[in-house]
Design a protein around this nucleic acid. Structure first.
Length: 937
RNA sequence: GCCUCGGUGGCGGAAUUGGUAGACGCGCUGGAUUCAAAAUCCAGUUCUGGCAACAGAGUGUGGGUUCGAUUCCCACCCGAGGUACCA
């Protein structure tokens, strides 16, 4: 007798789809297009766990659903295959990262294939493939060759900028450029050496070299971007990070800050995700105010959002690294200032963060002149002012800013109270509605009115202007690593020069060691062939470097986010060898229609890729300034860790319920040794690790119960569940449906196998509807009204649920349908056939099998999606709850098309209603048609 | 501290222009089947009281609007995520 043989069905149809290339998408079609994208994975050595495919399953359901609806669906997958783990493995073992990566990808592919995804594998991309990174390098060079014109609000060729320099100098240019860009005339430009010109151009390029304060991680031997540093330690590995000045490649993402911020309004993303990006960009509107150094013609600027508080300034604070500090420090203060600067430089990010409580600082001995009153104001240095934000200096208003207040109290600096009715003995007043006093022409005004007046006054005096600042910094683009895209640039006597585009890709050279060189150069410093011969136009040995024809190539590689910042466009035309993607392909697919991925990429990938898309839009390579309007964040599936409790100092373990009677230490045990009722398999546990072999146990009810805790799924916590195991036991369709059934896709939830059986039962029951004693048995009889109602209700609800990405409730709808149909033992083709199509996105293997059994030759994958018919949904009557004073007393069935007055009359005429109302005074009747009748007594 | 989201049975979670709270699944209880068990099927399952009919309470807490609030408003408590000396 045949049963629901899911293993056979899975294998059969996965083979069928692969052999027939069922899901291969064409770049042109009569059908409307739809592009469903997943964030591609880094192929790690650990393989996939049940948490990884959650988003892939959801997107696969939607992609399959769209195919049924008649769309030409692009649903690709690839690998973000440059990355640190493969490199670290290479350092340990000497194995080339490409080999490790290849193995890992193979494993990932096998695991993904077992789940039955409808990816178009002919479009697979890998960021570490030279054919792919050729174009990552190409985009890098386009950025290198561009500057940002704030007047046209877009990127433009640097050659145009050079023309302006040659004819007019740079005075009239409104560009996104470094703060320290000098002003020069056309003749001054023409007189510059190539090196000087190069230095200037880097202040304008969208990728540029700069001496920048970076997050240096000594343990990893590389710099990190801001989003790769979490709580002062590296995101990967948790190593300490320090601030260090280094010459680095940078990406001028700040040029796009305003557009990145504004266009968030056009995106259909979750509020929290948009908010994260808004905070990260951190726009603040304020003013730049210029202060003169007393007794000198030097000036310096501060940035403030509260220009109106200028009369309350009693001291200035500069960041310890501020360039003017050395000049203004008096000989008497020199020693203290130097000591403070040295101390500040030594501090790691983490130390700075933990020492926030107390303000520290040193007086420089120098004074600034107040731009309005002319009074002398002492200049201090302190690390509470950051070199990297605003101008690296502030005007301190202790009565209006809590940090300044604390600093003033700490060092006994006077406080001028500039707010009416404010008590400055305890804290500063940060209330924006407070009215100013002691503030000359601003007295009596709140901040809202005072700020523009102050800015106007400052502009009149040439001492300030309105300005907008962003928290967002330019992104560091250099990594001192081997396993990344080489930067296609060589250094011609110090001038960074692009390798001609026709010679891309600049392929990663072989090295003997993946570690930095002995003199501290990045790993590429170990490469023998890593010099550029300008005349031969090829890569040659470093021994030939003569700095006349042969020059050294850049040793840094690109960061992990480079390759992932444009891959979604490459899928449209993945094998193109003459351009990143053809205009034909991008004009057909346009952009991603649905993007699924984790919110952990909010301030990394999702920001950088928007930036690159906008740049590609500016240079007219892509048709849309945003590539992903609709984004869904799938929540993580967490591990359900299990603990055994070892009694301290012994090899004895006590069961969870009794552990409080002892001093114990919890120890992670492998969740695969624990059953659904939290009981530990003691024999397996003893065999697990040698030191547990002779462990003793204190049991409760003859069993050992473990403790449970929800944690991130990770190998070290022994809470990893492999999808392969679930599939072997229950089949791919059960895994798919169960992961959806677990709860809404966007929330984090622990993996718990408890409900698996329920979903598996559903699939078995569904299969049973088509089979009688294991034999296929479907009748061609006409369905009854009741059966049609069940069918059409299910079509309606499932469709709505898919459209709302509410896949957990969609699965519930299927279960309801199969229960209802099971009760009346339906086996009618006219009911079951549409249900199979409905189920196909969720459980494609079973659906294909049943579809074939029903006598179809073609795959179900493109079968038209069934539509519901309203006539089967309409109920002719509606049960109205009859409420008395808001409490339900009775129910009456009434026709749905009855009007308000008739309902009222009918209800009042009802016998039961009259008996309820018999001795009560009726005050009013509230009728909500289609919903309720409320009698108020 | 600030920003965002959330808080519903023993558990995962349903329920939106405000209208019978707890769909569906798990678990649990009882029954059928079985020598027995597993599996399967049927019934029940928010809590309290009651054999029951039924009564009362109930969506984090307190208040408000409303005939009627899980849903809207105010205040607070708790949790998750993000962010932080950003001037």
């Amino acid at each position: 007798m045949k049963t629901y043989d899911f293993n056979r069905i899975d294998r059969k149809w996965q083979k069928h789809w692969a052999e027939n290339q069922t899901f291969k998408a064409e770049n042109n079609s009569e059908k409307p297009k739809y592009y469903v994208l997943d964030m591609f994975p880094y192929p790690s050595g650990a393989g996939l766990h049940v948490g990884h495919p959650l988003g892939y399953i959801a997107s696969d359901i939607y992609a399959r659903y769209k195919r049924h609806q008649g769309y030409n669906v692009l649903h690709p997958m690839g690998y973000d295959s440059f990355g640190l783990p493969a490199e670290q493995y290479a350092i340990l073992t000497g194995q080339h990262p490409a080999i490790t990566t290849e193995q890992n990808i193979k494993r990932y592919r096998e695991q993904m294939d077992k789940i039955g995804f409808s990816f178009d594998w002919s479009r697979e991309v890998r960021t570490s493939d030279p054919k792919y990174y050729k174009w990552t390098q190409w985009i890098f060079l386009q950025l290198f060759k561009s500057w940002y014109n704030k007047d046209t609000d877009k990127a433009e060729p640097i050659t145009e900028l050079i023309k302006i320099f040659e004819t007019q100098g740079n005075a009239g240019i409104n560009a996104a450029s470094d703060a320290d860009t000098p002003t020069f005339s056309a003749s001054e430009w023409l007189a510059m050496t190539p090196q000087q010109k190069d230095t200037i151009l880097h202040k304008y390029r969208l990728t540029y070299l700069a001496e920048a304060e970076v997050n240096w991680c000594p343990a990893l031997g590389t710099v990190l971007a801001n989003d790769e540093v979490v709580n002062g330690v590296s995101e990967r590995g948790g190593h300490p990070v320090e601030r260090k000045k280094m010459r680095q490649w940078m990406m001028r993402i700040t040029a796009y800050a305003e557009r990145l911020l504004n266009d968030l309004d056009t995106l259909d993303w979750t509020d929290s995700l948009k908010e994260m990006q808004r905070n990260w960009i951190g726009k603040s509107v304020g003013a730049r105010i210029t202060f003169k150094v007393a007794g000198s013609d030097k000036t310096f600027d501060v940035f403030t959002t509260r220009a109106d508080t200028l009369y309350g300034v009693t001291f200035m604070v500069m960041a310890p690294e501020h360039e003017l500090v050395d000049e203004i420090t008096t000989p008497e203060q020199l020693e203290k200032v130097k000591a403070y600067q040295a101390q500040a430089a030594r501090k790691t990010e983490r130390e700075r963060m933990t020492e926030v409580k107390e303000k520290t600082g040193v007086f420089t001995g120098g004074y600034a002149e107040h731009p309005l009153t002319g009074e002398n104001i002492p200049i201090w240095i302190s690390d509470y002012v950051l070199a990297g934000y605003g101008t690296g200096a502030i005007m301190a208003v202790p009565s209006g800013d809590q940090r300044d207040y604390e600093f003033a109290r700490q060092f006994d600096i006077p406080i001028i109270n500039i707010f009416e009715g404010n008590d400055i003995s305890e804290k500063a007043n940060e209330d924006k509605d407070a009215v100013l006093t002691n503030s000359g022409f601003l007295n009596g005004l709140p901040a809202k009115e005072a700020i523009p007046r102050m800015i106007a006054e400052l502009e009149k005096r040439g001492a300030g202007k309105a300005e907008i600042n962003y928290r967002l910094r330019d992104a560091v683009f250099s990594r001192q690593r081997y396993w990344g895209e080489p930067v296609p640039v060589y250094f011609k006597n110090g001038v960074a020069t692009a390798i001609p585009e026709k010679h891309l890709p600049l392929e990663l050279p072989e090295v003997e060691k993946y570690l930095p060189t002995e003199d501290g150069q990045p790993p590429l410093g170990n490469a023998k062939n890593w010099a550029w011969d300008e005349t031969a136009e090829q890569v040659v040995s470093v021994d030939l470097i003569d700095n006349e024809k042969v020059f050294p190539i850049e040793l840094n590689t690109m960061p992990g986010w480079a390759g992932s910042s444009w891959y979604f466009n490459r899928y449209m035309d993945p094998h193109n060898d003459t351009e990143p993607f053809s205009q034909e392909a991008i004009n057909y697919w346009q952009k991603v229609d649905l993007y699924l991925g984790g919110s952990e990429h909010a301030t990394g990938h999702l920001l950088y890729s928007r930036f690159w898309q906008k740049f590609l839009y500016d240079i007219e390579k892509v048709p849309a300034p945003e590539y992903s309007v609709k984004l869904i964040n799938q929540g993580m599936i967490l591990g359900y860790s299990a603990f055994a409790y070892r009694i301290n100092g012994t090899n004895k373990f006590v069961s969870f319920g009794l552990k409080d009677e002892y001093e114990t230490t919890p120890i992670h045990v492998d969740v695969n040794m624990v059953d659904d009722y939290d009981y530990l398999d003691i024999d397996q546990f003893k065999a697990w690790r040698p030191d547990f072999a002779d462990a003793e146990f204190i049991l409760e009810d003859g069993k050992y119960k473990v403790g449970r805790e929800v944690e991130k799924m990770s190998k070290s916590k022994y809470n990893v569940v492999n999808p392969d195991d679930i599939i072997a036991q229950y089949g791919a369709d059960t895994l798919r449906m169960y992961e959806m059934f677990l709860g809404p896709i966007e929330i984090a939830k622990p993996w718990n196998t408890a409900g698996l059986k329920g979903v598996h039962n559903f699939l078995r029951k569904f299969w049973s509807l088509f089979h009688n004693d294991g034999m296929f048995d479907v009748s061609l009889e006409q369905p009854t009204e009741q059966e049609l109602r069940i069918l059409h209700k299910t079509i309606k609800k499932v469709t709505e649920d898919i459209e709302n990405f509410s896949f957990n409730t969609a699965v519930s709808q299927f279960m309801i349908a199969v229960n209802e149909l099971g009760k009346i033992k339906t086996n009618k083709q006219q009911i079951l056939s549409p249900l199979v199509v409905l189920l196909a996105p969720f459980a494609p293997h079973l659906a294909e099998e049943l579809w074939e059994e029903m006598g179809h030759d073609e795959s179900i994958a493109f079968e038209p999606y069934p539509k519901y018919e309203a006539r089967y949904l309409k109920e002719n009557t509606k049960t109205y709850p009859i409420m008395v004073n808001g409490k339900m007393r009775h129910k009456i069935d009434l026709p749905t098309n009855m009007d308000k007055e008739t309902i009222e009359k009918t209800v009042l005429a009802d016998e039961k209603v009259q008996s309820i109302l018999a001795d009560k005074q009726l005050k009013k009747v509230i009728v909500v048609p289609g919903k309720i009748v409320n009698l108020v007594v």
